[in-house]
Design a binder for these strands. Sequence first.
DNA 1: TTGCAAAACTTGTATATACAAATTATAATA
DNA 2: TATTATAATTTGTATATACAAGTTTTGCAA
Lengths: 239, 239
Amino acid sequence: MVKNKYTSIYSKLVLLIEEGKYEPGDTLPSEHELCAQFDTSRETIRKSLNLLAQNGYIQKVRGKGSVVLDHSKFEFPVSGLTSFKELANQLGKDFQTHVHELVVQQADSPVRERLNCKKTDNLWKITRTRVIAGEGIILDKDYIRQDIVPGLTKSICENSIYDYIENQLQLEISFAKKEIIVETVTEEDQQLLDLQGHQQVVVIRSYVYLSDATLFQFTESRHRPDKFQFVDFARRTKV
Amino acid sequence: MVKNKYTSIYSKLVLLIEEGKYEPGDTLPSEHELCAQFDTSRETIRKSLNLLAQNGYIQKVRGKGSVVLDHSKFEFPVSGLTSFKELANQLGKDFQTHVHELVVQQADSPVRERLNCKKTDNLWKITRTRVIAGEGIILDKDYIRQDIVPGLTKSICENSIYDYIENQLQLEISFAKKEIIVETVTEEDQQLLDLQGHQQVVVIRSYVYLSDATLFQFTESRHRPDKFQFVDFARRTKV
DNA sequence: TTGCAAAACTTGTATATACAAATTATAATA
DNA sequence: TATTATAATTTGTATATACAAGTTTTGCAA
């Protein structure tokens, strides 16, 4: 994949940190040295380092340098915008996706309000369960605008919708707003998940946007509580 | 508070957006125009705009401009690093903080491992409940390194420890790693919270760092599930 | 040796320029 | 009028310079 200079330098530095070339507590080479190593300007290096800082790999300290953080402590990055398949691949777990429903329907009122679309707009409704080690753990209910994402098939839904959107349709998924709450189980949860007596599920509602700021997807992801984990890296923003 | 140019411009733009001067769907004035308005260079304006984008206020589109997003949709910003008091103030809710325990102890093994400190290090242990509308909703258990944060009092814990750390001690809280999971209630939960029959609590474990990358606090925040909500704004990072 | 001051180093901020890439507006043409 | 090509506008990337602010090292003096 073709990238610009500073993201490719970022990726190389991430690799070096994950390989252990730079260990937690170490300081990276100074910006000046990195300029020489990568044969580029200081501003470009600084953009790469800011990416590292944003994603929790380093902490920059004025006068000292860029201190490497213990990024591995949280090996389960559910934060950010990562598809289930990308996640499962990273973890190397035994998993399957079952597609229960894949239909086109007109937006009914509760979803229409969430997706901010017209009554006549056609929406994909996709219901899937994620099966890990033989147990139905996650129930995903997706609503996707068909005019933006046409041509969905069962096979695509079993693999990765994100992969299809980004690589086949060449659309750019950009950001999402997420909300995490706990709800009591519904009849659908009980039918499609192996709840093992749990009376509540953790629900993640996501509103997903393209890079031109159009909202195209609403997802409700319902997790069995004992298998749920969310990890976040947060920087303090002063008022 | 003295700030640098680009964060102060950022704050002004946030204000204009929250006031409704720029509405969702509008585009901000172009970078060039903003340069003229704020009498500064384009790079400085770009830093301000990048802050807006990171925090979910705008989406930048090449060739078009900076589109204002609907930031108000999530009026409950638990994401990021915000103290309970800051949050409660924003919401204007009726709340109280009860301090149940405020002691200094040597780090015992489970906490020592989390805080990555020596056996002989002294730690504050603070146990507090957050009471909203008369009900004990949140149980906070804090462990803070005494050598870094000395002089804690009950009064400080009833108000805001973060406020004391930042304004009295002049330390800079910088970032945190958080983990959210669901656990079954403990005896302590049942004693100190009004659980109303709930058998599980949502637990947020936070590791909080200063700007020089030293880990100084570990917090376990235990929430009654029906009152828990976590909101996140996430940008997709390409590999 | 110890303590202090100066220098060197490192990151932060602000400004300027040049060109690339995407979108939008304009003008010319059929 | 409708279409197409061109120009103007807007954001993205890369580079360069100058100085500020914090940390570490160096070296001098007591």
